[in-house]
Design a protein around this nucleic acid. Sequence first.
DNA 1: ACAACTACTGTATGGAAAAACAGTAACCCT
DNA 2: AGGGTTACTGTTTTTCCATACAGTAGTTGT
Lengths: 220, 220
Amino acid sequence: MQPLTTRQQAILDFIRRYIVEQGMPPTRADIGAAFGFASPNAAESHLKALAQKGAIRLEPGSARGIRLPEGVLEQVSERLDAHLRAMSEQLSLPLVGRVAAGSPILAQEHIESRHAIDPAMFAPRADYLLRVRGNSMTGVGILDGDLLAVHSTAEARDGQIVVARVEDDVTVKRLRRRGDGIVELIAENPDYAPILVDPSHTPLAIEGLAVGLIRDGFAR
Amino acid sequence: MQPLTTRQQAILDFIRRYIVEQGMPPTRADIGAAFGFASPNAAESHLKALAQKGAIRLEPGSARGIRLPEGVLEQVSERLDAHLRAMSEQLSLPLVGRVAAGSPILAQEHIESRHAIDPAMFAPRADYLLRVRGNSMTGVGILDGDLLAVHSTAEARDGQIVVARVEDDVTVKRLRRRGDGIVELIAENPDYAPILVDPSHTPLAIEGLAVGLIRDGFAR
DNA sequence: ACAACTACTGTATGGAAAAACAGTAACCCT
DNA sequence: AGGGTTACTGTTTTTCCATACAGTAGTTGT
């Protein structure tokens, strides 16, 4: 098919939309009305150009005789795709990879892949998955390589397992707020010492709450 | 919508097909030609009857002005729904509850619920989820209440974590085949002693292989 | 037995829509 | 500088199509 001019493309798009929305092709007058043409002949000549270039087929002498070569179902399929994308988006969780310093954890460039898991399996609902590195949380059954389901929130209660960012370092630990204002990030493994952070001196951000876990292999 | 006569239904079906195939609604003459009418008025009165009963909507004065009330998209959406149902079936795993003695683990009556998780997340692919009871496998991070993703198979290699059935008792353990023919089902927790089974005397079946794990809450 | 409805034929007509003819004004190319 | 293309306006003609009116035949219900 030969390349279309901007105007021709706009008219073709209009015809497509019109068919999907109205269930029938537009008349010359319909096109004219949509584009503000004073004469139906403007539409007529555009249609001829489109037909010449093979973008449409014109049924001579027939009212609304504009045919799209691909058929109606394929017209719809674009929308369908969008729907399906939106749907699978809703039923899947992004796996967040290496998080760059200073950037938000859910930034597009951190999403390594998406996994088809219902976020509503977890309560509160999971917002993303984080691949766990290291053995600091083996005591609560969080192993190296596990995918941690995280609910994105800055609020965490004492004793909860959180995803925290200490000076651009993202880590999974149990949270403990001490009376003296110091925050303890406690590993669930006797080999690892608790991390003590003074929020008034060191940047500390609670990125989210651990709400679930997925282990995708025992053969590791 | 009021009930249609046989003839009216046939004409409605024709209109539907015509729209999908031709990309535009038929004229009265088109309908007449398809049904062998000598007069376009036959089609006209059928259309009026259909419009009266709410099966179609007629756009007065407009060529091919027959509208299906649901629109083309909704026509397709019925099919879509079926597809999506089939799809979500494919993208989910059954959660197997209490397994009754002597019955196959994947029997319909054991399926408590389905969870939207891609079976292909695990390798080999998971066939069902099993709620883990007890603390016998905490050493490999399988905690009480976790959902174990299981690949249904009777074949397991030495050292793999399996779902085994010993005398109608379903249990998750590490498999070890001894040289003397005795099978050891080893707990990953020093508090639990290995179970020794002599397959020649005691019924033992390997139900499947642990291929993954899902923990749906840390607040338990 | 007769009204009401369905399923048509046959004719007619006005408005809807396709499509041709005649122009104008930009813009691009060479 | 001028031919070709794009993007229109304006008008007219023909044909398509919707739709009204008049009528026939068969079926169903009461």
